[in-house]
Design a protein around this nucleic acid. Structure first.
Length: 229
DNA sequence: AACCAGGACGTGA
DNA sequence: TCACGTCATGGT
């Protein structure tokens, strides 16, 4: 099956516009957007990415940063067991800025429990996607973010922005669900972790700029890249 | 004052 | 399967 090179061209254009983003931002690495693409080599960093991925569900990253700093001060990013053992009230207060604090506290505890078990047996090996999806509170985007950014698995992350941009550009002939969109990207791009990481980061940045106020995409500099027939 | 934010889950049709 | 309500704080 032949590749649709528009997927690569749109990436090239965004990279040209914005430069590399270097996701995932880690506070434990001395600052955000460190521009370092190496897969985390410490399990604490993998854990922090999972926590951040859960906290950022339908929430701006700025609010998540505050929550992460608070959790870090409670020693909960370095020690999943501390998070697991803590009273919900403590955690909920720490993560309040990220919204949905009751649900997210429960999600974090479930994830911490899973992480400790998984890490005990196979420290650096990635969990399976279905394993993550079976956890309450981890859906497809969160699971794929963890796989891609924490473990370097070449899997494409789809989010609400992705649908908004690519629908507007006319890249989808019909309404597509999560898995269908993911297939489309992965069938039309080389299977490379760094490419997938940058692509998703650039989509988020680009969407914040041109797709967060209606009418979405009206000023989008990419809007002429796709020929409508 | 409404709308949006790097979603996921529960429910009823 | 899918459309819709719920979860909750903080920005603009």
């Amino acid at each position: 099956m032949k590749r649709n090179h528009l997927y690569q061209l749109i990436f090239d254009r965004m990279l040209q516009l914005y430069g590399p983003q270097g996701w995932w931002p880690l506070i434990s690495k001395g600052g955000y957007h460190c521009g370092d693409y190496t897969v985390p080599d410490h399990w604490q960093q993998r854990f922090e990415i999972g926590v951040g991925a859960i906290l950022t569900q339908n929430t701006s990253w700025k609010q998540v940063e505050k929550a992460l700093v608070a959790l870090h001060q409670l020693q909960m990013l370095n020690h999943p067991q501390t998070l697991l053992d803590a009273d919900c009230q403590i955690i909920e207060t720490a993560i309040k800025s990220a919204g949905y604090f009751r649900q997210k506290c429960k999600k974090l505890k479930i994830f911490s429990d899973f992480f400790l078990q998984h890490h005990r047996h196979i420290p650096s090996l990635s969990p399976r996607r279905e394993e993550l999806l079976s956890l309450w509170g981890i859906g497809p985007e969160t699971a794929d973010s963890i796989l891609l950014y924490a473990y370097g698995v070449p899997i494409f992350v789809i989010d609400a922005y992705t649908k908004r941009i690519f629908t507007f550009l006319g890249m989808y002939k019909e309404a597509l669900g999560y898995n269908q969109q993911q297939e489309l990207f992965m069938n039309n791009l080389k299977s490379e972790t760094i490419l997938y990481q940058e692509y998703h980061a650039l989509i988020v940045l680009h969407a914040k700029k041109y797709y967060s106020v209606k009418p979405y995409g009206s000023e989008c500099p990419l809007r002429d890249m796709v020929q409508q027939l």
